[in-house]
Design a protein around this nucleic acid. Structure first.
Lengths: 174, 174
DNA sequence: GCAAATTAATGATTTATTCAAG
DNA sequence: CTTGAATAAATCATTAATTTGC
């Protein structure tokens, strides 16, 4: 399969600006994303029409882009940042600064974690891990989907018993 | 910049039969790393406090270990895998572009987009660029010509139109 | 073979973000 | 607008690999 298969508008060849009309959707360049991210970080969340047009105009120097792309970018980025925060805030509370004292587990809770708000006591059977290909997972960071599921189940799997069956834990995953 | 103040580990009597007596830093055993890696590859990214404690308890069978070690391990491993990934595919950015026609400010949002969901990690992209000294923007596979142009224009446009008050600092390096 | 010296990995800290609550 | 919660990124620091001279 050729790389052009996916239909991305690869910026490679189109130095001229117009490039291939083949691309179905905007494929931002590194520079474009950098600028947009900077703006976002600087506090810009919902740019006005004028701002959008200006930004778009500016970014067009880096490659093909339209105003709507800018608009959507902010929409999406804002939403995803929020979602990301929500997702992890429900289940992750760790210690920090505790390492200095070396208190270990104790201070973990001392940190005032709530953690347990994990509403669902979902009865998802914990066979999930066995479903994971493990080998095909590679080190990619496609954590999104799978992790969400695993996290819930992992609690079960790991918390199962722990009677110190040495290799038991490991074997169950291998 | 007081930085070197760290590292006062009171030479704890390291239990366990595996490690040394020094309180330098955790030195995981092969088994411990194996289990941690399996968990990671199974999708576990940011374990909860409970999970950390459980994992730590389990792994203590193989040698000295503390909860914080587990916590740090996942932090580091996650970050480094991502870093490794990012090194390679820097230009594969995809924002779920949206095939809408013209852009007209507010009306778009009114359109009722209901698609923002997939928590892709790709929008994270390379913030590395922000560290660049302004004009050394990357000598990636892109043509060189465009960059210098934008830097000037961007400064202009943003400085003129954006209402965001004190945040203009960002502009200094665009 | 073996240590001293150098380099690569990786454990542990610090810093800078983001969203959200008050 | 300020502050709390919780990272993830960047950085510091130490251990293990390895290279090198003998």
């Amino acid at each position: 399969m050729e790389e052009g298969m996916s239909g991305f508008c690869i910026k490679a060849g189109n130095g001229g600006g117009h490039g291939n009309n083949k691309c179905a959707r905007w494929n931002p360049t590194i520079e474009q994303v950098t600028v947009l991210t900077d703006l976002f970080r600087s506090g810009l969340r919902t740019p006005t029409t004028d701002q959008i047009q200006n930004i778009s105009s500016q970014l067009s120097f880096y490659g093909k882009i339209e105003s709507k792309n800018v608009f959507y970018w902010f929409q999406n980025h804002k939403a995803r940042e929020r979602q990301k925060r929500r997702r992890i805030s429900v289940s992750v509370i760790q210690d920090r600064g505790d390492p200095l004292t070396g208190l270990e587990g104790k201070s973990l809770s001392a940190k005032g974690f709530a953690e347990v708000d994990q509403v669902t006591e979902t009865d998802r059977v914990i066979k999930t891990l066995q479903l994971f290909p493990l080998n095909t997972y590679v080190e990619s960071e496609c954590e999104a989907g799978k992790f969400r599921i695993l996290r819930d189940n992992c609690k079960e799997v790991i918390g199962r018993e722990f009677d110190y069956p040495p290799l038991d834990l490991r074997l169950s995953f291998l």
